[in-house]
Amino acid sequence: MLRCDICHVNYTGSMSRCPLCQAPLHGTPEPSPLTDQRTLLLPRLLAARIITFAIIVLFLLTLFFTLVFHWPPRIMTASAISLLVTGVFANMTIRAGIHPLHILFRFGYIVLVCALVWLACTHNLTITCMVIPITLLSMLAFSAVTLIVLRTRAIARYAKYYVANVVCGLLPLVFFPLHWAPWPLLVGVCVLVSLILAVAMVVFTWSPLSREVRKQLAL
């Protein structure tokens, strides 16, 4: 074991100097009981680089098709922003080592952001009538499934996502006064499902849900 004669502290690992006073260490190095973090991080870094490479290739392909087939600039803009948002999310998720269920909850928000980008660039009402409601219905269904399967564990881990999904599910109500819902069926179903899930959470999980939301949001 390595020892600092000045600080009188023993160390494991292969350090050459004391981390406290920078004096030379004496003794025989011993393997550290902790796992080498570099071994755990290398696969994540490689995956992040692969995704970055894929995003750049997709951007170049989009640029190529825009020039060859004379796509409108708004298509290029929406594609570029969506790829950027997706790439940043994927890199941050991989590097942080986030739990898969957290990733699935957050991925829905990324899809919504990309849909709103396309709506702002193209003004295509198919996005408000189909893409956004279908995305929100998928998020609400995923919330309901995790609540049924995980029960109390779900509330402890994902309370803030449940509240956020219900709120997002009610947002399409603004499509009606803005005349963004010429085909209102999916929009209405999305709002109805969100209300049903909200009522179910209030009736069956209000106390633990409110407690966990305050805790997770540090209120």
Rank of each mutant, 00 (worst) to 15 (best):
M1F: 11
L2T: 02
R3N: 00
R3L: 13
C7L: 09
H8A: 07
N10R: 05
T12V: 14
S14R: 13
S14N: 15
C18T: 00
P19Y: 10
L20I: 07
Q22S: 13
P24C: 05
P24Q: 10
H26R: 13
H26E: 08
H26Q: 14
G27E: 11
E30I: 04
P31F: 06
S32Y: 05
R38I: 08
T39V: 14
L46A: 14
A47G: 12
R49K: 09
I50T: 14
T52H: 09
V57Q: 13
L58V: 03
F59T: 09
F59E: 12
F59M: 12
F59S: 05
F64I: 04
F64Y: 15
F65K: 03
T66R: 03
L67H: 07
P72Y: 05
P72H: 05
P73Y: 09
T77N: 06
I81F: 14
F89M: 01
T93A: 13
T93M: 07
I94D: 04
I98E: 05
P100Y: 13
P100K: 04
I103H: 02
F107M: 11
G108I: 01
Y109C: 01
I110E: 03
I110V: 15
V111C: 06
V113W: 01
C114I: 10
A115K: 00
W118G: 03
L119Q: 10
A120D: 03
A120S: 08
C121L: 02
C121H: 01
T122P: 02
T122V: 06
I127W: 00
C129L: 01
M130D: 06
I132E: 00
I132L: 11
I132F: 02
I134L: 15
L136A: 07
L137V: 06
L137W: 08
S138G: 15
M139N: 10
M139Y: 00
A141I: 07
S143F: 04
S143K: 02
A144N: 08
L147Q: 05
I148V: 10
L150Q: 13
T152R: 14
A154P: 00
I155K: 00
I155A: 01
I155F: 03
R157E: 13
R157A: 07
Y158D: 03
A159W: 01
V163A: 09
A164R: 01
A164G: 06
N165F: 06
N165P: 04
N165D: 11
V166C: 08
G169I: 06
L170A: 09
L171S: 10
P172K: 08
L173Y: 08
V174I: 15
F176M: 12
H179A: 14
W180I: 14
A181T: 12
W183M: 14
W183V: 15
V187M: 12
V187S: 15
V191T: 08
S194C: 06
I196N: 02
A198Q: 05
V199I: 06
V199N: 07
A200H: 09
V203I: 10
V203L: 12
F204K: 12
T205V: 00
E212I: 01
V213Y: 04
R214P: 04
L219S: 09
